[in-house]
Write a protein that binds this DNA or RNA. Structure first.
Lengths: 198, 198
DNA sequence: TCAGGAATCGAACGATCGTGCTATTATTCC
DNA sequence: GGAATAATAGCACGATCGTTCGATTCCTGA
């Protein structure tokens, strides 16, 4: 049962990249099959339905994201360095993982925000995990004495995520060459004003 | 030539609302015709092509946005009050204009960020105008002595827009009831740290 | 090695999409 | 009020979509 899951993995790899450009709904089974060298029905059989495919794409994308961003950050020292690692990891992960349309989760977030159903629920779950990761990392930074003890870690996560969404917008839509510089400066300001004063 | 532009306006009104939920590409001519009580070809004749419809929807949306957000803010006093008015106006404009899916420009921004063509170009133009409006308002606030003289107005606009995108994300996808509170607090912090110290 | 199961294909389905044509109805202008 | 014009409807087209089904090929484990 290895052949099956091999092509399956290849399909998902390609599907993640495509969905970063056209979204989960823009994914077409026929087109995807063609790009990966399969027949439409052959590909279809792997997932049973388009919704099944979308779910698996999200799952595989989350796994990839955790490997590329979250896990490396957890090897960084607790506190401010870890927060910085989370931010740096995110900024660079679409390019480092050959996602031509930027982060597929950002794309999916706006596509699914008004499309109820299990796919949306799954995405929301992943996003909650991600926000919880940021929040927890901020709390740890408080415990370590890097950030102010009265920091609102939830608000910190909001501003963290907002900077990321702004980066995606300036980079992908506006094609602004200063996007990364502004994002980095904005984040370093956020970190700076959250710092514990000595 | 009044009957024609009347129904045309009604079509666009409905199309803006629908596109706030499903995006510009999710707009279906047949479905839109049904909801507005026209035949598919009858509606089609107004725009000549789907792309024509999408362009007109963007145009009509921009007009609506300027009426709802930009123009009112220009009646507010120059400087910090005007910036606050821009922010408040944006936060409230989707609800006040019966846009069930939130701001249609935010939806379009992510849908079109990798779809080259005239529709995308038009959207980018509108977004540039919007960012320029924020930037200019920040510069005026500097001139008025409300904000620090060394303020980077471009970065200010970046953070302004990021807060808005974060708000949309927390509200529409995460359905977070604290979205507005966090956005407002975040913006008031931005304004606070940009203030000229006396 | 060979049987059994997994993987893939080919063809077809109903639905929906954007679009083009022609005919018909409604509106406007003299 | 009637002629000219605009607005709308009806129908058909080719394409693409997700999905189903039966046949076929491939792989794997005893």
């Amino acid at each position: 049962m290895s052949k099956g899951s091999d092509t399956r993995q290849a399909i998902l790899e390609e599907a993640i990249a495509v969905s970063s450009r056209v979204g989960l709904d823009g994914l077409s089974i026929g087109q995807l099959a063609q790009e990966v060298g399969l027949s439409k029905s052959g590909l279809f059989a792997h997932f049973g339905s388009k919704e099944g495919l979308q779910r698996k794409v999200l799952e595989a994308g989350a796994e990839k994201f955790i490997d590329a961003v979250v896990r490396p950050a957890l090897t960084a020292p607790r506190g401010a360095p870890r927060l910085q690692a989370l931010f740096d990891g995110w900024i660079r992960w679409p390019e480092r993982n050959d996602l031509p349309g930027g982060c597929p989760f950002v794309a999916a977030s706006h596509e699914l925000d008004d499309q109820p159903g299990p796919v949306r629920e799954l995405l929301v779950q992943y996003q909650q995990d991600w926000l919880a990761t940021i929040t927890r990392a901020a709390e740890i930074a408080v415990e370590e004495g890097h950030l102010r003890s009265d920091l609102d870690s939830r608000l910190f996560a909001y501003e963290f995520q907002s900077i990321i969404l702004g980066y995606h917008y300036y980079l992908r839509l506006m094609r602004d060459e200063g996007a990364m510089a502004m994002a980095e400066r904005s984040f370093s300001d956020l970190l700076g004003r959250s710092r514990a004063q000595r």
